[in-house]
Design a protein around this nucleic acid. Structure first.
Lengths: 340, 340
DNA sequence: ATGAAAGCGCTAACAC
DNA sequence: GTGTTAGCGCTTTCAT
């Protein structure tokens, strides 16, 4: 049997509550007793049972994080920052990765709630059933922060202004003289996908430039799909002077395809990514990218969640918060002025 | 207030225990009552409180995973596989990333234990104090699976035979005719670092080839350090015909440095990575690598942990298990025969 | 087939 | 300053 508060109390002829207080440095307990208790606790190797504590305090001091996948690093970096931010509030983070599967996402949400996470941060799959589930949970008293821009949803949102992020990247390319700018990314389904494409298209329309270079493929964002899409774009002789990729991962695939085609980055084709992952520095040449302020996003999301938890309020009483973070263009070496 | 079993019992004029059983499809409860209970549970939006359940059952159905960092994808991929494997046993995974900081690692371990994880999988920082803590926990009844090869430790280990992995990579290079093979990696402190360097050095000694090309830098494995190390290697005119990098991340930095120096991969310099991450396909050219069977590692670790949990045995009674996984060389396009 | 009661480890009124 | 008591939500003997 593991050692409990009762064991300590018995050996010291104290009441459980006294031991409990002593362990928490309650000023009402005399210093001697406190020391005595702590000393014995150490000797016996007492480890508090947070499960029991949670049952009475109705608080687990843990938050749940639901993401799509850990490996491709956007979520990895995000998870790390969220964990760090939560830790500064003495909170643990339970990470659940849905593998982009709405059914698994649902299981994950339910599991985190059943484990009584004090709140949830969710980068959702955007399946409406699950969004409704989250709204429901929020109403039932479990605060939820959403990391996607979903309109008309009664949840707090910490989102990214991808439209303007990509518009500013386009502006940068146009200012350098680029007119034939391609976009390579997945079909616009999720908010990030829709917004990033929209930023590109809005700019194209406004400046009457190259919307025929919009290249949308089916499937999840991966370097391989970026690679293949680029190859087929180049084959068709629709050669652009610059490519705006949906994200960094795809951009790396684009770069590989350009080199393999015997062209050079950035001399023949400039490439811009998005997300701002550390692995941009992995590319040759290092990737210019529309960086999402991932750390800030994590900090803001956790901050907001902690407010909700402390105020013991979910949505219903209050208007949902809408925080929008603006991406920042990080200029590296994958872009130059167009060749001709 | 959230709805509890007692609420359902009251409304249906049943005992709590009956409701509890009905919810679990206990055959002793009549089908009608079972249906009635479940129906009302659905209507009221009953959600089981796993905290309460855990307190009595002494099981949380969650395991703790302690890793060094999530973002650089080895641990990301690992975490994903562990989570998947655990899920097949109906277990949730609590991930804690220590950011390579032994003190934070300790906090993380304690936090996971306080939350009463049924077991731990740890890719340790290899700080001996923490290892002893883990041994202690194991003795106290919390099974621990270690993912590092640490000698003479009384914990189950699912490790990687990095020595032979790297020797086979060297053999492959030598067979192609390479004699001037450099190694680029961090100072050998952790087991992975020691073993991978050892695999290189053993081969060099055996075949009397180029140990002067061993290039060890200070700091954590990052593409930037791989990049810088390569540049200084090339500056000193110690030009190798091939580079064996500590891992894929560093290899990507090496590749970038080679291109920037006006040399070509693999024509002038061949590059081999290690780990076998998905981002190898991101490189130009796609990276040949000594792939760790990450998924298998995850599956084996979880399998072993589940056995320990089910048998309700940690180390002490039993001899610790020693599972060694052999990496596999995945041949892509970053290696060719040497130039001259 | 169902109920009553005890208890998991801890906390928090309330007493003295 | 310390003890008593009740109870968090659930499971599990032991009755009936």
């Amino acid at each position: 049997m593991r050692v409990t508060i009762a064991d300590i109390a018995r050996q010291l002829n104290l009441a459980n509550s006294t031991v409990s207080r002593a362990l928490k440095d309650d000023p009402r307990i005399s210093t001697e007793v406190r020391e005595q208790v702590k000393e014995l606790a150490r000797q016996l190797g007492y480890r508090p049972n947070l499960v029991a504590r949670s049952l009475v305090s109705e608080r687990t001091f843990s938050i749940g994080l639901v993401i799509n996948d850990i490996p491709w690093s956007f979520f990895g970096e995000l998870a790390q920052h969220i964990q760090n931010a939560a830790e500064s509030y003495q909170y643990a983070t339970l990470i659940y990765s849905s593998g982009n599967n709405p059914h698994k996402e649902r299981i994950g949400i339910e599991s985190l709630v059943a484990r009584r996470s004090d709140g949830l941060i969710v980068s959702a799959h955007e399946n409406m059933e699950n969004i409704h589930l989250l709204e429901q949970l929020s109403r039932e008293g479990c605060p939820v922060i959403l990391l996607n821009n979903i309109p008309a949803v009664s949840l707090d949102i910490v989102g990214v202004d991808n439209v303007n992020g990509n518009r500013s990247a386009m502006q940068y390319l146009a200012d350098l003289g680029h007119r034939r700018i391609a976009y390579i990314g997945p079909e616009p389904v999720k908010s990030f996908e829709v917004e990033r494409l929209a930023g590109y298209e809005q700019f194209c329309r406004q400046f009457q430039c190259g919307e025929e270079l919009r290249m949308v493929f089916t499937g999840e964002a991966s370097p391989l799909l970026g690679y293949k899409a680029t190859l087929s774009l180049l084959e068709n002789n629709h050669t652009p002077t610059a490519v705006l990729a949906y994200n960094d991962i795809i951009a790396l695939g684009v770069i590989r395809a350009v080199w393999e085609s015997g062209l050079r980055v950035p001399d023949d084709i400039s490439v811009v990514g998005a997300d701002g992952l550390a692995l941009c520095l992995t590319a040759y040449p290092p990737l210019t990218t529309v960086a999402v302020p991932i750390r800030e996003m994590a900090v803001k999301a956790v901050e907001l969640l902690m407010q909700r938890i402390q105020a013991n309020e979910s949505i219903g009483r209050t208007t949902p918060a809408r925080i929008q973070l603006l991406p920042e263009l990080i200029i590296r070496q994958s872009v130059s002025v167009p060749r001709s």
